[in-house]
Amino acid sequence: MISDFNTTADIILFASKGELWEFHSMIAPTFLIENLIIGVGKHLKESSISKLEELNSLRSKYKDLLPR
């Protein structure tokens, strides 16, 4: 592990981006994060749907100001 913060964590998740000399893809870390979001969403169901609807509303409201 690179960070000293790993000693304060209850759970450590690792996703390799490859060796220093290789192309550094963010696919593995992104996949890990997306799956965590899905898992939390499944667990919290109703409040997750409510927050997603709120996010969608904000995106619609500010669509002309958001970068593409």
Rank of each mutant, 00 (worst) to 15 (best):
A15G: 02
F31R: 04
M26A: 14
E46S: 07
S16E: 09
S16A: 11
H24N: 13
F31T: 03
G41E: 14
S25C: 08
G18W: 11
T30L: 04
I12E: 03
S47R: 06
T7D: 14
E54Y: 07
W21Q: 11
F23M: 06
N35E: 09
S47H: 07
L13Q: 10
I38Y: 09
E34A: 07
I49F: 13
I2W: 13
H24Q: 12
A15L: 07
K17Y: 02
P67F: 11
S16Q: 06
S47I: 08
E53K: 01
E53Q: 04
D10T: 11
L32W: 02
S3G: 04
I49D: 06
V40E: 05
E54M: 03
V40R: 01
L66W: 07
K17L: 05
K45P: 00
L55H: 09
L52G: 11
L58F: 15
I33P: 06
K51S: 01
F23S: 08
I49E: 00
M1C: 01
K63Q: 01
G39Q: 02
M1K: 08
L65T: 02
Y62E: 03
I2Y: 05
V40F: 01
I37Y: 09
L13F: 14
K61C: 08
P67R: 04
A9K: 06
N35W: 12
K45D: 00
L32S: 03
D4N: 12
H43Q: 06
S50V: 00
K45R: 14
P67Y: 02
L44C: 09
N6L: 04
I12F: 12
F5L: 12
G18K: 13
